[in-house]
């Protein structure tokens, strides 16, 4: 019994201290946002990588998801004689949940992993130490631009995913399910509320922040050698995915249970 309690206690201490380190890292990152020096070139490179270069994968994922959602809603709605709810459910499903979560997970897969691998490799090859000796703080030069890019690109990517997802549903519904295009669009627009859009953007911002922060955190804290780089990359994606889904639940609760 004592052994179990001891193991549980040890697990709690490890988990809380890991969370504490992560929170301190996040606060340290945010504290650099307003303090010079700034590195605009690094920021725009990060914005390009996190935002623009994520557009194809985000767009394609959203397109197929929206299309599949329309088929599912039509099929499910037909069971209780309500197939006409397709535009409303596709819109609310994409904007409130699927758009943000898909973007979050896609960024975690594409961006978090690449940031973690890049930074871990920089650490292993002493490039991080070299930065310090060249009077450049890694938090400011490497971390802050990437996290800021995640914060800003997240909502834009979510807006793109929401729109393309709804478009995917629109194409399927109007081309194969016999919906009238004008009525479909009117039902979509009329059904969505500002709170839906706001929650979607807030989630995009939060998920962009989490995804880039996890990449930086695990990259800068990686172990030695190729194994260290691999472990850091894997752990960063796992942590980002889990935290994104947990944050999604928390934000949904905040926005829609009041």
């Amino acid at each position: 019994m004592i052994l179990i309690v001891r193991a549980l206690g040890r697990f709690c201490i490890v988990a809380i201290s890991a969370l504490g380190r992560l929170v301190l890292f996040a606060l340290a990152t945010l504290s650099h946002v307003l303090r010079p020096p700034f590195y605009p070139r690094e920021f725009f490179n990060a914005l390009l990588n996190v935002g623009y270069l994520s557009l194809p994968v985000v767009g394609l994922t959203a397109l197929f998801t929206g299309a599949a959602l329309a088929l599912q809603i039509y099929s499910g709605g037909s069971r209780f004689n309500a197939p006409e709810v397709v535009p409303q459910i596709v819109a609310i499903g994409m904007v409130r949940e699927l758009g943000p979560v898909l973007v979050g997970l896609m960024i975690a897969a594409r961006v978090t992993s690449s940031i973690a691998a890049e930074m871990a490799t920089m650490k292993v090859t002493e490039q991080i130490d070299a930065l310090v000796t060249l009077s450049t703080a890694p938090m400011k030069y490497l971390v802050m631009p990437r996290v800021l890019a995640g914060l800003l690109a997240g909502p834009v990517l979510v807006a793109v995913a929401d729109s393309i997802g709804i478009f995917g549903g629109f194409i399927v519904a109007t081309q194969t399910l016999g919906f009238n295009p004008a009525t479909y669009l009117l039902n979509t627009v009329n059904f969505l509320t500002p709170a839906d859009i706001l929650s979607s953007m807030a989630k995009g911002m939060a998920f962009g922040f989490i995804a880039t922060l996890m990449g930086c955190y695990y990259g800068l804290n990686s172990g030695r050698g190729a194994l260290g780089v691999g472990t850091a990359t894997k752990a960063s994606v796992q942590a980002a995915a889990v935290l994104i889904l947990a944050a999604n639940f928390a934000l949904t609760a905040v926005f829609f249970t009041a």
Binding site: M122, T125, E126, Q127, D129, A130
Partner: peptide
Amino acid sequence: FQGGALFD
């Protein structure tokens, strides 16, 4: 640095 540590 030992390995050069150049920014690739």
